[in-house]
Design a protein around this nucleic acid. Structure first.
Lengths: 239, 239
DNA sequence: CTTCATGTTTTGTGATCACAACAATACAAC
DNA sequence: GTTGTATTGTTGTGATCACAAAACATGAAG
């Protein structure tokens, strides 16, 4: 294991080659785990052990311990009283709270970023929007998730500041495992986004419409699960 | 050092007695540092070393490393490229961003919490409001900061959920060292809050007024520093 | 006095070991 | 078959050591 671009015995893809220079092992482990979580490779409820990760990435316990502490602090992982660590499970209430927080923070970030979105970045955003549609049409969940994240990140990161973005990323870390799980089990057909509407609002430099589009994007995306969907997820019925 | 309720050679008060049972050393170290930061005992720019903290709290490096990783992940501490860690410094832009994020998240948290604020909690909030005024009148900065934090925490924590509150706490960790520094150097006289107005809004069950009061509380509190204030702070001129 | 090279000290990082807490299993008693 | 207990294995925690990188101090050369 721990070699380049293979699937290990836990079924988790560890793509990035190797630690090298200029970066600490702890930092490398952190990024590996973070990408895996964001990519939805960790299923909610899965327990994560120090030795398991250490063996998987072929490092000692020390850097894994620190990387996991970071992820726990960001609520990407959950530490139970028993000292066990696992990927957090999702609930209706928690998802609602995450959506509310996303709307509050992402509309703020977008409003702050809008003046800094120039023609070049706007083109890239339109391009990403197309790529997302293609991924949905092709039922390619992995690249859908990656592009979707890239779209929002490219949006907000145009603006200044280093305070709000980490908060948003913490939220994404929290719902990503669930989102992958939900898309896997319910399908991609219900995935409507408001990205085009948001981009048109940017072109018109209309902050209010931009906020509205993004709020709708979250509400009709993550926040749109019906009671039937939830029950299907809880019964574990597959795709 | 590391004994109960003394001031160590760094001038930092480490009040809580000792680790005992039922809690890991790492967790204890984390809480100690967190309280010290929230209480404004760490001045912005101050460098924090592993061995320094370990010696201060009389533990080995291991628990300190993990505790500091947590605090760095919460942006309570800042890790530089040189592998050095310090208490983050504040800038005009950063403070503005923190205020904007606080308004977005805290008005949301308050709105969610309002239905759960019963008569008993409201009484306690009024009581805290009085204690804050007394602390200001007595120029007692330490208890002012503690009560101020307790007031907001008691407010938001009435509501359900475990997602939004940690985000808010991360923001408080980020501005607390600066706030203490600013109050120390500029004085407590400009400290006007909108707590009473917020509580009256709760009594009327008026969400809009509640949000307005809290937004004003942040904007006229943290966000009210003038350019003259900033220059005074940057010159390091004392009280 | 300034600047650069050298040596010393401090500091973070990673690995390893010992240990205690916890979970899981196996087995006996009813 | 169920329940309770002893045993075994696994896991997180904390301490210590070795090492490399960075910061600091020292001193010579300009």
């Amino acid at each position: 294991m721990a070699v380049t671009g293979t699937i290990n015995n836990d079924g988790i893809i560890m793509p990035i080659p190797m630690p090298d220079t200029g970066i600490t092992r702890q930092e490398w482990v952190y990024r590996q785990l973070r990408e895996a979580i964001m990519g939805g490779q960790f299923v909610p409820g899965r327990s994560v052990t120090l030795r398991g990760i250490a063996q998987m990435l072929d490092v000692s316990l020390t850097p894994v311990r620190e990387a996991m502490r970071r992820l726990i602090a960001e609520h990407a992982l959950e530490a139970h009283g028993n000292r066990r660590v696992s990927v957090p499970e999702m609930s209706r209430a928690k998802l609602a709270e995450i959506c509310a927080a996303r709307i509050a923070l992402e509309t703020l970030a977008a409003a702050r970023a809008m003046p800094a979105i120039d023609k070049k970045r706007l083109e890239r955003l339109w391009q990403l929007n197309d790529l997302i549609d293609e991924a949905v049409a092709a039922r390619d969940i992995a690249t859908y998730l990656a592009r979707h994240r890239e779209f929002h990140y490219m949006f907000y990161s145009a603006g200044p500041g280093s305070v709000i973005m980490p908060l948003i990323e913490s939220l994404w870390l929290q719902f990503s495992p669930f989102m992958r799980y939900a898309v896997d089990h319910i399908g991609v057909d219900y995935l409507k986004d408001r990205h085009a509407e948001a981009l048109r609002a940017v072109e018109r430099r209309d902050v209010a419409d931009l906020r509205f589009a993004l709020e709708a994007d979250v509400r009709e995306g993550l926040g749109s699960l019906t009671e039937a969907d939830w029950q299907q997820l809880e019964n574990g019925n597959g795709v």
